[in-house]
Simulated scan of single mutants.
Amino acid sequence: MSLHYLPHDIPTDADLLSGPAFYERIARITEFDRLAEPMRYVRLPDEWIVGVADIVGSTEEISKGRYKAVNLVGAAVISAQLNAAGMQALPYVFGGDGAQFAVWPGQRDDAEAALDAVRHWAREEYGLQLRVATATVADVRAAGQDVRVARYAPSDGVDYASFSGGGMAWLEARMKAGEVNLPVSTETQAPDLTGLSCRWANIDASHGAILSLVMVPKAGASDADFARVAQDVIAVADKAKRQGHPVPSLGPKAQFPPPGLDLEARIAPKGAMWWRKAKLLFGSAFAWALLRSEIRLGRFDPVDYKVDVARNTDYQKFDDGLKMTLDCGADTQVQIEAVLQKAHTDGVIRYGLHVQDAAMMTCIVPSPVERSHMHFVDGASGGYALAARNLRAQAA
Rank of each mutant, 00 (worst) to 15 (best):
V137I: 06
T345N: 13
E179H: 12
A287N: 07
Q394K: 01
D331K: 11
P7C: 09
R242V: 06
A387H: 07
A287E: 13
R299N: 09
M374Q: 09
L213V: 15
A36M: 05
A27S: 14
L322E: 09
P20L: 04
P368M: 09
L353M: 15
D357H: 13
D146A: 15
D319S: 15
N71W: 09
G165T: 10
P191Y: 03
A254I: 07
E31P: 03
V247M: 03
G382D: 10
D54V: 12
A227E: 13
M215H: 08
V180C: 07
R123P: 01
V303Y: 11
A27N: 11
Q333H: 05
A272Q: 10
R66C: 03
E47A: 15
C198K: 02
Y305Q: 01
D346P: 11
V118W: 03
F282G: 06
H373C: 03
A240P: 04
K253V: 08
A230G: 14
S249D: 13
D13K: 02
D109A: 15
K270T: 12
V369M: 00
G19S: 15
F163C: 08
E187F: 06
F376S: 02
K239I: 07
P45H: 05
L6A: 05
A53T: 14
F32E: 08
I78S: 08
Q255F: 12
F282D: 05
V158Q: 00
E61W: 12
Y152K: 04
Y92M: 11
K323C: 05
G352K: 04
A388F: 14
H375C: 02
K342A: 13
D13L: 03
S197W: 00
L386W: 03
S2G: 01
R392Y: 08
E31D: 15
S372N: 14
G57V: 04
R141V: 00
K241W: 01
F32R: 07
R242F: 10
F318T: 06
M1I: 01
D314H: 04
C198P: 02
D13A: 07
P269D: 05
M87K: 03
M215C: 12
R25W: 09
L326H: 08
L213E: 10
G144R: 05
E125L: 01
Q100G: 04
L6M: 05
Y351W: 15
V149Y: 10
P154C: 01
V334R: 14
R266M: 08
R296I: 11
L291N: 10
P366H: 02
R350V: 02
I267Y: 04
A359D: 02
S249Y: 04
S63K: 14
S18A: 15
H120V: 12
W104E: 06
A395R: 11
I10W: 00
L290D: 02
A169R: 15
A138C: 00
M39G: 00
V355L: 11
P258H: 05
G96P: 02
